[in-house]
Design a protein around this nucleic acid. Sequence first.
RNA 1: GCCCGGGUGGUGUAGUGGCCCAUCAUACGACCCUGUCACGGUCGUGACGCGGGUUCAAAUCCCGCCUCGGGCGCCA
Length: 454
Amino acid sequence: MEKGGCESPVFKTGGPVHPTMQNRTFTADAAPGDEVTVAGWVHEVRDLGGIAFLIVRDKSGKIQIKLEEDSMDDELVETGLDVARESVISVSGSVKEEPRAPTDVEILPESIEVLAESDTELPLDPSGKVDAELSTRLDNRTLDLRKGEVKAVFEIRSEILRSVRAAFRDLGCTEINTPKIVATGTEGGTELFPITYFGEEAFMNQSPQLFKQLMVGSGLERVFEIGPIFRAEEHNTPRHLNEATSIDFESAFVDHTEAMDACEHVVKSAYEGVAANCESALETLGLTEEFEVPDGELPRLTYEEAIERINATGELDEQLVWGDDLPTEGERALGDDVGSHYFITDWPSEIKPFYIKDHDDDEQLSTGFDMMHPRMELVSGGQREHRYEHLVAGFEQQGLDPDQFEYYTKMFKYGMPPHAGWGLGGERLVMTMLGLENIREAVLFPRDRQRLSP
RNA sequence: GCCCGGGUGGUGUAGUGGCCCAUCAUACGACCCUGUCACGGUCGUGACGCGGGUUCAAAUCCCGCCUCGGGCGCCA
């Protein structure tokens, strides 16, 4: 495992950033006997009368600054006491060992400089004494991310993306980037965001599906992409976003079972990376005990087995029959029953998109698969239809005009190898891994039905 | 797209027709306090989303609008 992520050694500032910040010391690195300059946000001021404590917070943690009337310069003490919470200050002084201090060290300041004052009435409380609603938090994301637990989510998200990239590299993938502005939709039917492109109608892409398929027929053969997707569905749920991060895989010369193997490897790698490199972030989130890397082979249920098991739970009012899509309640019942990540394979062809290949011996049965977390769907994939005639017929069956997709279909006339792949919802991975209640918590600036700003 | 539930000081809340010129916490301001660690204490400032209606009386009931959240469908 590459070193990096949340637990990498605290980054030392190298060159001059600001004249007063040369050789800035992170609060976590301040050791007794050092002469240091720390810089950060005023987390709290505790004024006990003749003595006061200023808690300064930076990326690495917090440190206590002692202010004492009798033994220190009046102006220095006054500066320290006048500063509002969440103002940015830099403090120079000596670090002393002090068992009575929260971190066993405190700084005796020689100078305090206020670099940026904060207004006194904060729109939310970064010290976490008073809760804020998600909406308030998202409106003030900068302040929200000053809270350790919120920061930890994004440190872990960063580690997930790093480990996922490393896993794709293990698999011999090339990372690609495909256009997000497109002339036509990917799968038809789905709501797309229309935009104007130099006077022409265009759309925000809902998936890199068609483009990544075109790349398996290129010299690259095996690719992955991590990028935004846009869906104009007006849903309002804790697990949908209108702009999400899709983690996509596509490879030539593999079938759907091998694509599932790759999927399992990538998802497990994300968990392993977090387990290995995000110890303190997990601790901040209170997940140290319960965090588990998915173990062993993930169960692979056929669609038929899945509906039977759902029916057997008795959770649904109406029994499912072959051909039904799985309702949310059914997914949940099955998730509880299985109790781990699992795959659902061999879906009825009619409820999977046209570009998914049917089984050769049964055209009612598709090679499509979903990978599920007990709480929700994470991944959708399958072996693709690589035969030109079948593909064009599929378009027509779905009521789509193949001519509109000529840029895509014509490449199937020049040697498109058998291939398979999948797409993984990045935010859903973060959300399910950390047990977040709302997918919006897994994005810095979520786009949903009501939210376009910030 | 269909359905349901909310909006009360900066923040989070209590209050379901008169007991409310509105509760509590935190924040903010003033004062006291030399080892706090959610420091403590005293005092103070500050709010019923907007518009209309019902009623002797509306935060509370009704209608419209705005806004936030959730369920389903669909999906990652």
